[in-house]
Design a protein around this nucleic acid. Structure first.
Lengths: 189, 189, 189, 189
DNA sequence: TATGAATGAGCGTTCATTCAT
DNA sequence: CATGAATGAACGCTCATTCAT
């Protein structure tokens, strides 16, 4: 048999793509991505049929990473506030620790190269605990009077505010993450 | 005797740029923008030295529009909550009423074609009343324990959540704008 | 006003295209064609929207040249044989004198980059006298018992045979053209 | 102990090549040809050193098929007209029955990927009876005054005319083949 | 021998920018 | 000043061929 497709190369391409998107947006060229992954330009296309497919796979990968991180050690039996704080902290820490991946993820999420089909493929994997927690939040506090989905948007939005602030005051990261949650929780209480 | 540069043409180019960015992202070509503004390709470059400059000017213009709207009829003497609600409502309505401009504004804001210099030039124009109001909010509620700037980020972020939701439930626009503020205000109270 | 599109450049591109197609078939690259015409790669596309359009225009141009040559000094009032010989001789001489154009024309004619629409645009211009003559031939001799169009195919085919032979015996060009017609005429008599 | 190269695979590749050339011209990719032959991309190159070699071999194969068909049941002792008609009919029927092979053969014949050496190798295999017959025709009728080779070109050319016409009127195939020969024979008589 | 991943030159086309008119 | 033709680098993608397995 011929050489097998190397998972390492696939990963290298995905990582390079995230890096390039963070640096220059969705206009990031396949040539640069390939060079960043240390493979030939053509090789990129043996792993991903097109730039669009690469970007969809990357989005999946990135979202998957966050969900995997949240689900690991999820405090299923704890109070809602504890569970909410877990979701908040884990996803926020991922964003802060991997700023390039986060930037890429946001850009992809906003664009329309990421298809509806891709977006749908995400949750079905293991969105479970997160969704359950957000659902409970949505039924409380101010969110009770707002459509479902608003609570999730609001959490994401408040996390953006924290990330912005951490970018300016990196030393206070831990405090910001915690106080940020307290702010968010005021709305849910 | 050179003809004077026409402000109408300048405006037409800026508007066409916003439209094109909303439609196809920052990859929008100068040729399309020029055609959209009904001027020749080359003419664009007599008004803006480069695509980057055009985009920076557009960002300024867009942000300026919002501030101008907020400042018109600003209730300087009202309570903080009333003033905050005014800022919230006016800027949010602008976003909702002019989705293309907003989309362009977001895309530009996220990218790095908009320079730090441009970002700094914004407020200096007429950020006055808004800044004062946000400053007061930052000294209250949860924001008291968070760095300055967090309150502003949080408001913007919460507005994004409202916009997202309005996009899905356009009929409930008025309610969402109001309840959204109530949610935000819980953090400031 | 800006620089006007130059008919010379257009012609240069068409000629270069014919040359390149003759040399390397329809795979001839736009880059080589542009270089052959001494214009920049991009310039080709200001004259022709795509490679396909260029090739269709070239086909039209080439067919037009032959028809123009036949129609000039066409002996409208002469006998059928004289008129037929005129068509035969003029078109054949064009083919022999301009071997590259002929090669390109054949390749294009056989391929399907030349659209039906293009093929239809040809005759309407001035196929007149030729068509009339071929029509008369089709009603005579062996052709009487064969479908319309066969006579035209046969003339073209017999011309190919002459061209093949002239290519091997260029000295006898004049005789071959004449005797070739005599051979063809045997079928029509 | 190396496995022997399989003649079946060789044939499958040649057939797939003919099919692909008929469908998409000489630009047909080796990858598609390999897939069409149900072998791996690399395997193609263990049977043929390069795409050009494959195409030359294919041309030989295709021409060989026609000659083999003509030579089978060749009426060696019949009159010239009968023998000529046999050559005409058999080769023409091959073209009509196997349109893909014919299309490929024409495309290859016109291009210059088929080398002079290949063209020369053809007849030497078994052109015998055909050549003899064409030689006799060349010494008669109009062909007497034309160079050797013209008769052969003329026959091929007239066959092209028949094929063109059959393509438009498939129902009349049999009549066209016969009447076409009559037309050709007028020149030879 | 058979496989198909790897390669990088080359493809048709787009584009920001320049500059002759 | 306004125009749009001209430019060539860069783009996403394909391909014949090589070679590790």
């Amino acid at each position: 048999m011929a050489r097998a497709k190397s998972p390492e190369k696939r990963q290298a391409i995905l990582q390079a793509a995230a890096r390039e998107i963070a640096a220059s947006g969705l206009g990031a060229s396949t040539a640069k991505i390939a060079k960043g992954a240390d493979v030939a330009e053509g090789t990129l296309f043996t792993y991903f049929a097109s730039k669009d497919e690469l970007f969809n796979e990357l989005y999946l990968e990135l979202k998957g990473e966050v969900y995997r991180r949240i689900n690991a050690e999820f405090p299923y039996k704890a109070t809602l506030q504890v569970r909410a704080r877990h979701v908040w902290t884990e996803s926020l820490n991922w964003s802060i620790e991997r700023p390039e991946e986060r930037k890429a993820s946001v850009q992809l999420g906003v664009s329309d190269v990421v298809t509806v089909a891709t977006r749908e493929r995400i949750g079905s994997q293991q969105r479970g605990a997160v969704e359950e927690t957000l659902g409970e939040i949505a039924a409380r506090g101010v969110f009770k009077d707002l459509p479902p989905g608003f609570a999730a948007s609001a959490m994401g939005a408040m996390q953006d505010a924290v990330i912005d602030t951490v970018a300016r005051k990196p030393r206070q990261k831990a405090v910001l993450v915690e106080k940020g949650f307290d702010a968010f929780w005021r709305m849910a209480k």
